[in-house]
């Protein structure tokens, strides 16, 4: 499927944009491509999110992937500084894990290539 890499970079843009705008943390990121699946992992070090902030972001990541929405609206991902487009990130992802501990925040996004 076309635009697959663009979609991955847009998702990364969106995440980085949001966290840099609000917290300016130290960010470590890896992208791993295994077969038809991309794993994008972020570690935001020295970032302490309040429970309220954490839950607000996490609630955006609870949605299932929707191809019928994704292919229309994916171009909007990546240019917003608030969390509203995390909804779209969620609609473009097969699995999202979002967690935190006393020192860092962890985000892993799994996205399979669109079905052919």
């Amino acid at each position: 499927m076309k635009n697959e890499i663009k979609k991955i970079t847009k998702i990364i843009d969106e995440v980085i944009n949001y966290f840099m705008f609000h917290y300016k943390p130290f960010v470590a990121m890896t992208i791993d491509c295994k077969g038809d699946t991309f794993f994008i992992s972020f570690v935001f070090k020295d970032l302490k999110l309040s429970d309220e902030e954490f839950d607000k972001i996490k609630s955006k990541f609870k949605l299932n992937r929707r191809v019928e929405i994704e292919d229309y609206y994916w171009q909007l991902v990546g240019d917003s500084e608030n969390a509203s487009e995390f909804t779209l990130v969620s609609l473009m992802s097969d699995e999202i894990q979002f967690s935190k501990d006393d020192e860092s925040v962890y985000l892993t996004i799994t996205r399979k290539k669109s079905k052919k």
Binding site: M1, K2, V67, E68, Y72, K115, K116
Partner: peptide, 12 residues
């Protein structure tokens, strides 16, 4: 032609 599910572009 895109070899995508028919529902993929139905909203548009």
């Amino acid at each position: 032609i895109q070899k995508a599910p028919l529902k993929q572009y139905f909203l548009i």
